[in-house]
Amino acid sequence: MARKLLRLESVSRKFGGLDALRNVTYAVPEGVIQAIIGPNGAGKTTLFNCVSGVFPPTSGSIYFDGVRIDGLPSHKIAALGVSRTFQNVALFKNMSVLENVMLGRHRQSRAGFLACGFRLPSMKREEQEIIRRAREYLDFVGLVDEENKPAGSLPLGKQKILEIARALATEPRLLLLDEPAGGLNTAETEQLGDLIRRIKKTLGVTVLLVEHDMNLVMECSDLVVVLHFGTVLASGTPSEVKNNEKVIEVYLGSAAN
């Protein structure tokens, strides 16, 4: 199997007396779509937050491409090539669709206060480049016609897509998608699955996906890991996981009831 892009070594996270993650040891190979599933409260979002640096794990270590990243602030983790979306859509509603994606290019541009304030030629060139690249990503996700609308005015489905475009604009090697299909209808979910596969195939980005929609998970992911009460219950290909007895019992089983 391919090189491991992300490695978690006995990662734990406590909130007061609650163990959100308990000794999670897991690795994500480069170039796959990896889904994380599990019942509510299993620790999926907590895991994302630890990886992306929203808060550090209480113990354990996280490596991204061999570099230890646990405890780093999230902008530094982003600079290494990890980008993400949020469960409750965290767009910048005070900006247009295009500007949201342009913000994603922040790390790829240099201009400082003086260059920006005086609009030096270097800054102008860079700004043109930012706009060009941002449009490319909008085009990639199919939102290029909406670029001048305020981000908050889009319907939820498009907001979620826009958030993905913004995350892609940072040119990540690992993309964390937190429930991208939440609140979407069937047609939108299908388009989303398509987009996720294209992200892997065309852009070569490794995708880590937290999702409740089992159809989406089974259809588009290469690997699945099941979290249960903060621990890894099972992992493998979608069909392996689907047929794993423990998984059927605690997760699919309870869903079937």
Partner: peptide
Amino acid sequence: NLVRSRIGRAFLAIHADERAAQAMGV
């Protein structure tokens, strides 16, 4: 000029959602 540049966008992003701004590398 400043507010219509990458720095101005970073300001607005911080205003709207610090967590997301930081996750996008600001």
